[in-house]
Nucleic acid binder design. Structure first.
Length: 304
DNA sequence: TGCAGTGTTGCTTC
DNA sequence: CGAAGCAACACTGC
């Protein structure tokens, strides 16, 4: 699920619902661990690390949440930032929960029925807020990671991610310069590399390539300047469209109120295998190939 | 029933 | 070194 538009939707939700709240407690079943950039090896799978985590975030007031690549940073007023990566199936939920026999479930007072959606179970980390409500991490597959860093360390960490495709500084020249760092690699693979461009995953790379009419296996250096222009626009418009529709809930993704996004009904390529291409006048069919350990979907006619 | 496939990414192996 | 493949985990669908 969570690529740039889904993570952005989550961050927007945190900022509209829980900004200003203070964290008064944290619970975890230790099923999640922290992101492992070279500089941050410790794991919440150890009780010792979790004790330190608790000590660092309890009493902190949420100033603002921020997205970098597919990561969420929640800045607290005590100089600490909570760092969350939702990986494949993680998502954050805001609700009123109760702990019953080692499992958190929505309280009877919780009026938001979406939180009772089966996809919104599997809670592995719970932040209790000063209004008695909770920010919960739901994650079936338990790949999501949670840790903390000093806020002052973030500029150094942000350097490990590529440029942000929706920022004003992401010009066509930045785009091509980044892609040219991998001239011999297939374009789809390069688009997925977070160090080249931040935030693109399997869904939006398929969509961007469909928009640009480029086959996913084309090598970067074989792509013409005209095609690059189309791809640059395609990347930006696919991501913006994802945000406009509140993200993609093909699978587990939900916004922090537990509600599905709507982008899954809007795909042109992703997971439309065997269906007709919807580009105007195109007689093609969407094809799927296995590639780089995942699926790539593209039109067999207009993507060349 | 069984196995391929699922949004991510870092580690291992060659 | 780059590149390919896999592992982490649980569930769905063919």
């Amino acid at each position: 699920m969570p690529e740039l538009p889904e993570v952005q939707t989550t961050v927007n939700g945190i900022n509209s619902f829980i900004k200003g709240r203070t964290i008064v407690d944290v619970w975890t079943d230790l099923a999640v661990e922290n992101p492992t950039l070279p500089s941050h090896k410790t794991s919440t799978k150890s009780k010792k690390f979790f004790t330190l985590f608790k000590k660092s975030v309890i009493g902190g007031k949420i100033i603002e949440a921020e997205r970098r690549a597919k990561n969420i940073f929640i800045h607290l007023d005590n100089g600490i930032s909570i760092w969350i990566h939702m990986k494949m199936t993680g998502h954050l939920l805001y609700g009123k929960y109760v702990l019953i026999s080692k499992e958190w479930t929505p309280s009877t007072e919780e009026k938001n029925e979406a939180l009772r959606d089966p996809f919104n179970k599997y809670l592995h980390t719970i932040f209790t807020l000063d209004n008695g409500r909770h920010l919960a991490l739901s994650d079936v597959r338990k790949f999501a990671k949670v840790t903390f860093v000093k806020t002052t360390e973030l500029p150094e960490i942000y350097k490990e991610f590529g440029p942000e495709p929706l920022e004003d500084t992401f010009t066509f020249s930045v785009f091509t310069k980044q892609l040219q760092k991998r001239p011999t690699r297939p374009i789809k693979e390069v688009l997925l590399d977070q160090k080249i461009i931040a935030g693109i995953g399997n869904i939006y790379s398929d969509e961007a390539l469909w928009l640009a009419g480029i086959h996913p296996l084309r090598t970067v250096r074989d792509i013409t300047d005209t095609e690059m222009q189309l791809l640059y626009k395609g990347v930006i418009s696919a991501l913006k469209k994802g945000i406009d529709f509140g993200g993609d809930s093909t699978s587990d993704y939900r916004d922090i109120t537990g509600t599905r996004g709507a982008f899954q009904g809007k795909h042109e390529a992703y997971r439309r295998t065997g269906q007709p291409c919807r580009k105007r006048g195109c007689p093609g069919t969407i094809e799927r190939i296995a590639f780089s350990g995942r699926g790539a979907h593209f039109c067999d006619t207009h993507q060349t």
